[in-house]
């Protein structure tokens, strides 16, 4: 019996299509193939116009994310064999993002959000180079390490209903990354970031659906990061309430 699998691929050509439609391709079913291999096979052998992003083929670059049977997946890490011989598999661009062509989404919005959380070490004092490096113990590294594994694949955005409903919501990966720097003992920017993120389109927009954590290929747990951030923000609020001085400084930073 011929081993095959059918891919139903969302096609969208902006110069002629009103909206995406599905096109079916039959590809050989090989147990060592991932979905990305099947897409490459189609592009090489069947239809060179099929458009999608990929690079590393090993779950590191984060560019091959697509909806596979309605689930956000890295296509380079999703084996055809998990769908079975003869199956029909739907491949669509990541949900909630604007589609540029076929399976390629526009990322500019995500990149602006990512930058808005200031994901870098913020220092109040900048010791001279001669003072040497910042030291960090393995325990101090362990506190934020999980949140630093993000590869910006945006699967978590495609999983999050709040992202779809609230286009201004900063979103899981960016908030997790903010928390990654907040929890880094070399960083001194937690207060500044709190001003940026303790608002309804930041951490308070999250309703703890938890889907981001489930789909994350790098086990970042953005949902956990955001809830921990909420707790901290709420406690800061109490502090600001008891010591109104502190809260004044904060509100200044909210709207620079």
């Amino acid at each position: 019996m011929a081993e095959k699998i059918v891919l139903e691929i969302a096609r969208y050509a902006p110069e002629k299509d009103e909206k995406p439609s599905f096109q079916s391709f039959e590809v050989p079913f090989r147990k060592e193939w991932v979905v990305l291999d099947a897409l490459n096979h189609i592009k090489d052998k069947v239809d060179g116009s099929l458009t999608y992003r990929w690079s590393c083929r090993m779950g590191v670059c984060g560019s091959c994310g697509m909806m596979v049977n309605g689930e956000p997946k890295l296509t380079c890490a999703t084996f055809l064999s998990s769908y079975g011989n003869g199956a029909t598999v739907r491949v669509e661009p990541l949900r909630y993002f604007p589609v540029i062509r076929d399976l390629v989404t526009a990322l500019s919005d995500f990149l602006v959000k990512l930058q808005s959380v200031k994901p870098w070490l913020i220092r109040k004092d900048e010791p001279p180079l001669s003072a040497g490096e910042f030291l960090q113990t393995p325990e101090q590294l362990d506190i934020y390490k999980q949140f630093s594994m993000c590869i910006n694949c945006t699967l978590c955005y495609a999983a999050c209903p709040v992202v779809g409903l609230e286009p201004t919501f900063v979103g899981p990966a960016a908030l997790a990354l903010a928390q990654r720097y907040n929890m880094d003992n070399r960083d001194q920017g937690a207060e500044e970031r709190l001003g940026l993120l303790a608002h309804p389109e930041g951490i308070w927009g999250c309703t703890f659906v938890g889907e981001c954590t489930r789909v994350c290929p790098k086990h970042v747990d953005p949902a956990g990061a955001i809830q921990q951030y909420k707790l901290k923000a709420a406690l800061e609020w109490v502090k600001g309430f008891i010591l109104p001085r502190g809260s004044e400084d904060q509100s200044k930073e909210v709207r620079p």
Partner: peptide
């Protein structure tokens, strides 16, 4: 921003 913390 602060009020949401209270309600939360």
């Amino acid at each position: 921003p602060s009020n949401e913390g209270f309600f939360w």
